[in-house]
Amino acid sequence: MALKVKAQEKLQKIGKYEGTYRYIMMPELYTSLSQEKVIKEAAMRSGVSKGIMQACWDAAGEVIKAWATEGHSVALPGLGTMRFGLRAKSVANVNDVKTGLITSRRIIFTPAVELKDELADTAIQITCYDRNGQEVKRVTSNDPGTVEEPDNENTNGDNQGGNTGGNTGGGEPNPDGSNED
């Protein structure tokens, strides 16, 4: 199995490459699988009836929701953990603390190492389309999943910015003074 990616030539309207056409890559999304289809497949793989699997699925969902809303980080078997977080404005005076400072409530997912390794080992198939939607090239990876950063001008080996696959929501202040978690 391989991840399918499309690279679409698009006109850049802002930033460093404004006014030029660049190939922008994004995953090709498949259709969403219905809960019924997932339950049917899980029942088949586990050897239990669809009704029992449905009851277990519903119960697990209720437990995860209850524990997560109580502030727990909840394990999702084979996937990682999820927890709730928030983004809020900071204030200097304790008397100014109120729920109105909360700007968003979030769900934070931290993938399991095994899941990240599986993703890193998955082949990538890229289909390139020009600005008119015509296919112009196909690329299939056979590499170990090494990520290159050719636009990164930092040559001393430090990762400046970018996503290193770490946990989002680490409580670091944001540039606007808000704080996550």
Rank of each mutant, 00 (worst) to 15 (best):
M1F: 13
M1I: 12
M1C: 08
A2P: 08
L3K: 11
K4F: 07
A7L: 14
K10Q: 15
K13F: 11
K13C: 06
I14V: 11
G15N: 00
E18L: 00
G19T: 09
G19Y: 08
Y21G: 09
Y23H: 09
Y23K: 03
I24K: 00
E28F: 06
L29C: 13
L29E: 14
L29M: 13
S32V: 13
L33P: 02
Q35W: 09
E36A: 09
K37D: 08
V38L: 15
I39R: 03
K40E: 07
A42Y: 03
A42P: 02
M44I: 14
M44H: 04
R45K: 14
G47Y: 07
V48L: 08
K50A: 04
K50C: 04
K50L: 00
G51N: 14
A55M: 15
A55P: 05
A55N: 11
W57S: 10
E62M: 15
V63Q: 07
V63E: 10
I64F: 14
W67L: 15
W67G: 08
T69V: 09
E70G: 09
G71Y: 12
H72I: 11
H72T: 13
S73G: 06
V74K: 02
V74S: 01
P77T: 14
G78Y: 13
G78E: 12
G80D: 07
T81E: 09
M82H: 04
M82E: 08
F84S: 07
F84R: 03
F84L: 15
G85S: 13
G85I: 11
R87G: 13
R87W: 15
S90V: 12
V91Y: 12
N93R: 00
V94H: 10
V94P: 05
K98D: 02
K98P: 01
T99V: 05
S104K: 03
S104M: 04
S104V: 02
R105D: 12
R105S: 11
R105H: 10
I107H: 03
F109C: 05
T110E: 04
T110N: 03
A112S: 11
A112W: 01
K116Q: 04
D117P: 01
D117S: 10
E118D: 15
L119Y: 03
A120M: 07
A120L: 09
A123W: 00
T127A: 06
D130F: 01
R131D: 14
Q134T: 05
E135C: 02
K137I: 15
V139L: 13
S141Y: 07
P144K: 12
P144M: 15
G145Y: 07
T146Q: 02
T146M: 05
V147K: 06
V147C: 06
E148F: 12
E149V: 04
E149N: 02
P150M: 11
D151S: 12
T155A: 02
T155G: 01
G157S: 06
G157T: 04
D158C: 06
D158E: 14
N159D: 12
N159W: 10
G161W: 06
G161T: 10
G161H: 06
N163G: 03
N167T: 12
G169T: 10
G170Y: 11
G171Q: 10
N174H: 13
D176W: 02
E180R: 09
